[in-house]
Nucleic acid binder design. Structure first.
Lengths: 226, 226
DNA sequence: GAGATATTCAATCAATCACTTGAATGATTA
DNA sequence: TAATCATTCAAGTGATTGATTGAATATCTC
């Protein structure tokens, strides 16, 4: 960079585009964006989830705010950030798609880590809707409870990964289970599938995650059950 | 950045995504990508079009190649680069959309430069297809001849901006003209519209540009006319 | 208003990036 | 085989970035 100035309007526009891309061009910021794809989050929550300091998280958030990716809302002493528009979801999705083309890398990493190649096969959203309507499937949401409360697939049950082992008795071994999480690369849902399969359950992953379910215009249920 | 290592697979994947975004996070590289959205280009042509040195262009191209955005093909002593997949077009489109949200900036720049606010109103692709089928419109492609030869809207006539003034007599002042170019921010088509309007022609811009027309699955004509 | 809590700001250092220059490949042509 | 042309590589320099630390601001509670 350095001596890029603002002569022609074409240049100015390309610099705007570049600023947006640059704001997303950092692994931690992408991790934060994935969090925000679920809904509003405070600075502290984001810092904890990504395991960085508050000041560092704040700095990354400022960066993305200036680029127009996210927008803040002050509520009392907390500041909540959210994605500025669904266009940001589309942006993240296209990033994923391009990275997958070079999939020798991305796919290999995911596969060698989780070993079980089958656990990568995913159920489509429309397929899950059919099964839900027919009532022949248990949907498992492995995200933390607060994310679940903000919106989830209808009739899904919320069992965070940390408590999954203790609640195995709640599941019918003869019933098909579909697990989902934040997004296509959310580690939690892979681990849930691997763990349940090891115990003999019939379980698959939902393609992508909740943000994509919402973006597809499919029904969302809000709040905690019972 | 700095001390980002490859502990968890989640991190690894986010680093892949970040590498893709970073490869696009530079105004010159985005300008090169816009060129490549038209089709293959040699290193020399790209360097000339973006007004940078060959070595510099080569370096930027290497960068994007490593990130999996573009791919080279050697033909004799030339190396031609092209976009690796249409997913890159989708990526560029989402970048544009996000930058437009912050449109106070992007739109203002384009408008204040071209003054004529009306010249921004665009004809939709489906509208143009209707007009083309009805034979009631002249389509004007203002890109350079070599880009035109690689593919253009059916029955379009190719008049690069530099020769437009000399060929004004070829146009019927009572016939609607639709001009298009590389993409939504291609300066050429704005200037063509402004110039023709100043001469009293009825002229509008096509929304976006040829890559988007192609991506929409609409017919393309190849080669030079006559 | 004082104290506590959540977030942002400011300053610093090491690491990375973009561009230039000149030399090195790779492929064609004479 | 030598000469030429297109592209890539390698090294050097100035500018920018990311993370850390500690101080500053804003809001709430008492």
């Amino acid at each position: 960079m350095g001596r890029m100035s603002s002569e022609s309007p074409k240049r100015v526009v390309f610099e705007q585009f570049a600023a947006v891309a640059k704001a997303a061009a950092h692994p931690l910021r992408l991790e934060i964006l994935e969090q925000l794809a679920q809904g509003e989050r405070s600075v502290e929550v984001l810092a904890n989830r990504t395991r960085i300091s508050i000041a560092n998280a704040s700095q990354h958030l400022q960066h993305m705010r200036r680029a127009g990716l996210i927008t803040p809302r002050r509520a009392g002493k907390f500041v909540f950030y959210r994605l500025v528009d669904d266009a940001v979801l589309a942006f993240l999705a296209s990033l994923r798609r391009i990275a997958e083309l070079e999939s020798a890398e991305v796919e290999r990493v995911v596969r060698t880590y989780f070993k079980d190649r089958d656990s990568l096969e995913a159920v489509s959203r429309s397929q899950l809707m059919d099964w839900l309507n027919a009532g022949i499937v248990t949907v498992l949401d492995v995200r933390p409870e607060d994310e679940f409360a903000l919106g989830h697939v209808p009739r899904a049950i919320n069992v965070p990964l940390s408590t999954l082992e203790r609640r195995l008795a709640d599941f019918d071994p003869d019933r098909e289970i579909v697990a989902y999480c934040r997004g296509p690369y959310c580690v939690l849902s892979y681990e849930a599938v691997a763990m349940l399969r090891a115990r003999g359950f019939k379980v698959q992953r939902l393609e992508d995650g909740l943000p994509e379910w919402r973006a597809a215009g499919l029904p969302i249920e809000v709040g905690l059950p019972q």
